[in-house]
Amino acid sequence: MEGELAHIGAGLAAIGSGAAAIGVGHVAGNFLAGALRNPSAAAGQTATLFIGIAFAEALGIFSFLVALLLMFAV
């Protein structure tokens, strides 16, 4: 029973991946909107874009980790 609850918890934690996807899409979309308004400034900001995506994505990876822990370690 406990194992089955853990699996349900893992599935719930996996929702966090979707939230991270929203975050990453938000970052990339806003970057694109800004880049299309001022394309000359866009090239210098790709590093910032990747840093932003990395931070947004890291939290999704945390939820993925929680899911994995629930699946295999609990």
Binding site: A54, F55, E57, A58, I61, F62, F64, L65
Partner: peptide
């Protein structure tokens, strides 16, 4: 923590 888990998590996933 985020620095390491980001890399490992991405690849593992």
């Amino acid at each position: 923590v985020s620095h390491s888990i980001r890399l490992a998590g991405n690849l593992m996933a």
